[in-house]
Design a protein around this nucleic acid. Structure first.
Lengths: 133, 133
DNA sequence: CGTTACACTGACGTTAACGTCAAGCACTCT
DNA sequence: AGAGTGCTTGACGTTAACGTCAGTGTAACG
């Protein structure tokens, strides 16, 4: 055990750990979502990058754009300077929270609808089964 | 009052009612999501089209693709024939329901996370306010 | 009958989020 | 030295969901 000297990971280790392609990680760096260090030319991803990537992937799962996510991520690592910007970002995040809660309400509705349809389908299939005997 | 002879609507009436562009409605027709009648060359949208469009727009709001939506819509207007296909579609919808419930669970988590961050931000801003007096 | 208003059909443009080469370093093993 | 492996940077390709524009048609109005 000295196979992970620091907590820095190569691009391949990252890909295996998060099930993404190298292209994706480079793309996220280009979009300033990740900031890996360099060993000469090679990328080395830090613990911070992994935390961010976790949030990126979570955000993507319910339809946020990478640009949305980038702005949210900025909320996570303010250092206390740049107060005005902090407050603006805070307000932005509040808006987004409202959106998300509205989205959940609609999702609840849609799930109820779909469940009703499924019950109807089930009844119909049962009928078909009986007719087939 | 005889301005709505049947319950058929022109493309413009549809656009106004649903806040979409003509291009969008034509596109949905091309993708076989809508099936407006024709008066010569002009489209006339039925009550059924309106019901479908409502579901299309709802589906889009939480990130389903039009192709996903098209398959779900098929569940809504089975006529009882083509049983095998009905059952397959039913199973497909069940899978999607599971996805949606998983998605909601994650959404709940993310909302909690974001709320925590917002509370932190609030405390920080309060501190800044006090420091500014 | 001319014009205005609205609709139609192509067909090309656009954005997001990567995929997919191509070509070239930098190590390491043999 | 040569071969292989892994990483790098361009740069062009791709899909979804429309936007946008050009050219044409037609129904109604004055």
């Amino acid at each position: 055990m000295m196979m992970m000297p620091n907590d820095l990971m190569t691009i391949r280790q990252m890909c295996d750990a998060f099930d993404v392609t190298p292209r994706t990680l480079r793309f996220y760096e280009a979009k300033e979502l990740l900031f890996p260090h360099r060993d000469g030319t090679r990328r080395l991803f830090t613990r911070r990058d992994r935390a961010r990537l976790t949030l990126i992937l979570r955000g993507k799962r319910f339809g946020f754009s990478l640009e949305d996510i980038r702005q949210i991520l900025d909320l996570y690592d303010r250092d206390g300077s740049n107060h005005a910007q902090t407050i603006r970002t805070y307000e932005l995040a509040q808006q987004r929270l409202a959106q998300m809660e509205a989205q959940r309400a609609e999702l609840d509705l849609a799930i109820a609808d779909l469940k009703a349809e499924l019950d109807a389908g089930e009844a119909m299939i049962a009928t078909l089964r009986r007719a087939a005997e």
